[in-house]
């Protein structure tokens, strides 16, 4: 079960995997995620469903190594299996409810920060196919960490790249590119930002000045992913929400990002220890 049928590294620390999961593949929609376990005593790790092929019965995930468990995932080889894979979890993006006609006239701006490129891809692809105008900004630390440029280019109208060090595209942050586009008097009906929490926070601050609705996808800590534990709770508009069942997508202007960032770091000490042990283990 859950065999990895295709694996490739898209950056030195990011790997793409196509997994056999027929039930999941036939029910997934843009905006949703899944949870995998790489081995029997493994952690339950949430990852966005980046692509799905109901006919082949496969789903695609893109994992970036940030700690012990993501490292284990990326160490699995083609032909090997995930112990578990469950989904689709979370609510689909709300545009999934809109009709073709509604979407066809709309202008979307996607802002992808680093790994956020992966979850933006299925959304851009879906909307582009439905006839919306889709512009995408991808920002990364440096050119080495940029990925999916060609794939993304094929599902959007305009693609803008930027890197912190200027090694590819514009030099600067995604928020600089947003300001640039706005100064060119670009018009958007909606925008979506996915990436590190801090990048989403600043994108929200920037976008708000232009009065464009913004959706963000929150990568909180999670355990079960089914609404049973509350590890994923976030404050949205002053109310407590569970990101795994009420989200992961929320109206950016209502999200308490500072609290969300603080909660994300709850296990940092243990994670650093675990990752240290894990590296030692894998080097042997």
């Amino acid at each position: 079960m859950f065999k990895i049928v295709n694996k490739k590294y898209v950056t030195p620390i990011t790997c793409l995997m196509e997994i056999e999961a027929p039930r999941l593949a036939s029910s997934a929609l843009p905006g949703q995620f899944l949870i995998v376990r790489a081995r029997d005593n493994g952690e339950r790790i949430p990852l966005t469903i980046c692509d799905f092929d109901a006919e082949k019965g496969t789903v695609t995930i893109v994992t970036q190594v940030v700690g012990a468990s993501s490292r284990l995932i990326c160490h699995l080889k083609e032909g090997e299996c995930f112990t578990d894979c469950v989904g689709p979890l979370g609510r689909p993006s709300d545009f999934v409810e809109m009709s073709d006609a509604e979407i066809a006239g709309m202008k979307f701006l996607f802002v992808a920060g680093g790994l956020g490129t992966a979850p933006v891809y299925p959304q851009a692809k879906y909307l582009h196919k439905m006839g919306a105008q889709v512009d995408v900004i991808i920002g990364a630390k440096n050119s080495e960490l940029l990925f999916f440029e060609q794939e993304m280019a094929s599902v959007c109208d305009n693609l803008y790249l930027c890197t912190d060090d200027g090694s590819k595209g514009a030099k600067g942050l995604v928020t600089d590119v947003i300001k640039q586009l706005m100064s060119e008097e670009k018009q958007y009906d909606r925008s979506v930002a996915i990436g590190p929490m801090i990048m989403m926070k600043f994108t929200a601050l920037t976008m708000k000045q232009y009065n464009i609705p913004l959706i963000v996808s929150l990568n909180t800590l999670m355990v079960d992913g089914t609404g049973m534990c509350g590890a994923c709770r976030v404050s949205v508009g002053g109310k407590t929400k569970f990101a795994c069942v009420d989200g992961p997508e929320f109206d950016a202007y209502l999200v308490d990002f500072d609290e969300a960032m603080r909660r994300q770091g709850m296990y940092r000490k243990q994670e650093i220890e675990a990752d240290h042990k894990c590296k030692i283990g894998l080097d042997q």
Partner: peptide
């Protein structure tokens, strides 16, 4: 399975868990 919280201030601080979690 859906855990209840009290709705008091500070419930989302680091170090507050539902028994389920």
């Amino acid at each position: 399975g859906l855990p209840k919280f009290m709705g008091i201030p500070g419930e989302n601080l680091n170090g507050v868990f539902s028994a389920n979690e």
